[in-house]
């Protein structure tokens, strides 16, 4: 299991990483590994406004499906179009080419409530 030390996490396995003023989100390496080969991902429309904890999409493998939750509230500014043709990018490089959405956070203070890398590693290790 690899962990992006620069990111913060939800217990539902989404990560949030700051890139300038915006946040990049995807699922952790642990999450992609337990889902198995990902076959499909459904992402929101650009411009959609979502609250922290609200579902922004769905990720599916052959045997499982999982909702994806916003780590912070915000407005979607970009989605990773490459995932439609090649969802395996999420398995291969969850923190890099397998990113899912970028969004403009509405409430920066929510960042502090997320798990840091060490806390998430401990959390994910329990499963």
């Amino acid at each position: 299991m690899t962990i992006d030390k620069n990111a913060r996490y939800r217990t539902s396995h989404e990560y949030a990483r700051r890139e300038g003023a915006s946040i990049v989100t995807g699922i952790s390496d642990h999450a992609q590994d337990s889902l198995g080969d990902i076959v499909f991902v459904e992402l929101p429309a650009v411009g959609k406004v979502l609250k922290q904890g609200e579902a922004f999409g769905v990720v599916e493998s052959v045997k499982a499906a999982s909702d994806l939750y916003m780590p912070l509230s915000g407005t979607i500014t970009e989605v990773n179009a490459a995932l439609q043709g090649d969802p395996a990018l999420i398995n291969k490089d969850p923190y890099g080419a397998g990113w899912m959405i970028k969004f403009a956070p509405a409430n920066a203070a929510e960042w502090d409530g997320l798990l840091d890398a060490a806390a998430y590693e401990k959390e994910a290790g329990k499963e």
């Binding site: 076959v39 499909f40 599916e60 493998s61 052959v62 045997k63 499982a64 499906a65």
Partner: peptide
């Protein structure tokens, strides 16, 4: 496309 179905979701 079984992830649509009740036995999974």
């Amino acid at each position: 496309l079984t992830a649509r179905e009740q036995h999974i979701r």
